[in-house]
């Protein structure tokens, strides 16, 4: 069998696709807590909502907010919307807020959102507790909410 560059490209493409796809299948929809460094100078700073200064800040839930970033060309955003709105419906004090990432790029950059859907779980004060990129399962959302509410 003659090894041509085309064959090498073919094998590389298959390996890349399967590797990336498998990684995504494992990591998608899992909530991760980002370490936010608090400035040492003001250890008891007043918590500021990540939505502070935007019109969405008033839509936050009393106990927690499921903040979803979506875009037009995003199939899993639909499933995520369904899951999050279902959770917001059954859990009191929790609201689902969906933001079109494409039209709020400053917020997207400030919060370090690189994919849609990305779900941020905010506590009652609007601080980020945890986040998930990719469509999360209902159970994962419920579990993340528990930590958001207990962290208060």
């Amino acid at each position: 069998m003659i090894v041509t560059t085309g064959l090498v490209v073919l094998i590389a493409a298959v390996v890349l696709a399967l590797g990336f796809g498998a990684f995504r299948a494992v990591s998608d929809g899992r909530f991760r807590t980002r370490r936010v460094e608090t400035p040492a100078a003001e250890p008891v700073s007043v918590p500021v909502s990540v939505l502070d200064g935007t019109a969405y800040d008033e839509q936050r839930g009393e106990r927690a907010t499921l903040l979803q970033f979506s875009s037009a060309f995003c199939a899993p955003c639909r499933a995520t919307r369904r899951v999050l709105s279902e959770v917001a419906e059954v859990v009191p004090g929790v609201r689902h807020v969906e933001i079109d990432a494409e039209h709020h790029l400053e917020l997207v950059r400030a919060l370090g959102v690189v994919r849609t859907p990305t779900t941020l779980v905010l506590d009652g004060t609007g601080r980020e507790v945890t986040r998930a990129a990719g469509a999360p399962s209902k159970q994962a959302v419920m579990a993340s909410l528990e930590s958001a509410v207990s962290a208060e």
Partner: peptide, 12 residues
């Protein structure tokens, strides 16, 4: 294989 849309992610 994964029903994953690469172009859609690159868009954002």
């Amino acid at each position: 294989v994964f029903a994953f849309c690469l172009g859609c992610e690159v868009y954002l």
